[in-house]
Computed example of a mutant assay.
Amino acid sequence: MAVAETGSGSAADRAGALLTIDLGAIRENYRLLRGRLGSGVCAGVVKADAYGLGAARVAPVLYDEGCREFFVAHLEEGIALRSSLPTDAELFVLHGAPAGAELDCAEHGLTPVLNSLEQIDAWTALAATVGRSLPAVLQVDSGMARMGLPEDELSVLAEDPGRLEGVGLRAVMSHLACADDQEHPANREQLQRFRSALRRLPAAPASFANSSGIFLGPDYHFDMVRPGAALYGVAPVNGQLNPMRPVVRLQGKIVQVREVPAGTPVGYGHSFRTTAPGRIATVSVGYADGFLRSLGNRGIAHAGSVALPFAGRVSMDSITLDATALPRGALPMGTLVDLIGPEQPVDAVAERAGTIGYEILTSLGGRYCRRYIDGGVEA
């Protein structure tokens, strides 16, 4: 959060919470993922502002580790990130160029992913207009019914490969739907469909595996993998020990602690009521900061190793905690408690919220004081 340094307090003093992002952990996660490959390329997915952690800070770190291929979702994301990377870094736009914005894509040196015949035709028309070949990635749908050429459009293109005239084909890609479940039959079915599509299309490097797909093994790696969430510490495989280093720590500040008698209702709707005398601590983080409302009466904060259950609903700007387990005076105003941290990584928070780590990370809001560290020091 960019805050002008005025007065005697620092930005961390003034903010209601501190979000620490460990760039060194991102480095190590990239190395781990790249190390699982043979000679293939390990790209970096930095869409959604690097999953909410700041693409302008994250992408250069990946570049320093040897990453040269970066994926964003939207054209505007690519335009914003282009100046943060050297010119030899290639930025791929997963949704392709929006209709009417193809020239913007080309002029900013971005490579679109072509997902339909309509996008292919618009890109080749631009290539003809500017009189040069334009790079692109071709995506085929191997069983997700979301993005990429469906079977009927794939057949049209396979029968008329000249339709790609003017396209410098950088890769053919597809996307796995169920890779986090290694035993799901869809993984093998999609692999077979993708291989079949590759045989019908002009020769080009192939890209198939996302973060979870990397852990399905070499059959899924092809020429380039595209990890995203695993770079940021999210577990890539359901039900297995997470091999990735945690990247984020979210600490909220205590703004008030009060002694309450038994039977005290807490928060909106009085959804929590104390059963014995105790202490309620209020933390200045809420759903306006991206800490999901679904964590009401289900979430846990930690003061060191001591668990402090959420007492009542998550409000827009605050969370109330049952701090009875701590002695009186243990949480003076301004004390930081962990909402995401060593005792509770992002996937554990997500499980309590009934969602996935991806949503927790990308929901983290703009009111936190953001602190970047690399190698344990401020970056």
Rank of each mutant, 00 (worst) to 15 (best):
L321W: 05
P309F: 10
V283A: 08
R370N: 04
A288S: 12
T355Q: 11
G66K: 05
L201R: 13
L154W: 02
C369G: 06
W123D: 07
V314K: 00
C42F: 05
A179Q: 13
D181R: 11
V346A: 05
V172F: 01
V255I: 15
G357T: 12
Y232V: 05
L149W: 11
R258E: 09
G52E: 09
G162Y: 05
L18E: 14
E183W: 13
A379I: 05
G341F: 04
G366Q: 15
V248S: 07
E28I: 11
D322R: 02
C42W: 10
E77G: 04
C105L: 02
E5D: 15
C42A: 08
G9L: 08
L149A: 03
R193M: 04
H95P: 00
L62Q: 13
V237F: 06
G376Y: 14
V377I: 14
G286Q: 02
S83F: 00
A101D: 13
R328Q: 13
A101M: 03
H302A: 01
E77H: 04
Q119L: 07
R370T: 13
S83L: 03
M333E: 15
Y268I: 03
I214Y: 10
M1L: 13
L321K: 05
G168P: 04
S305C: 08
I254K: 03
G9N: 12
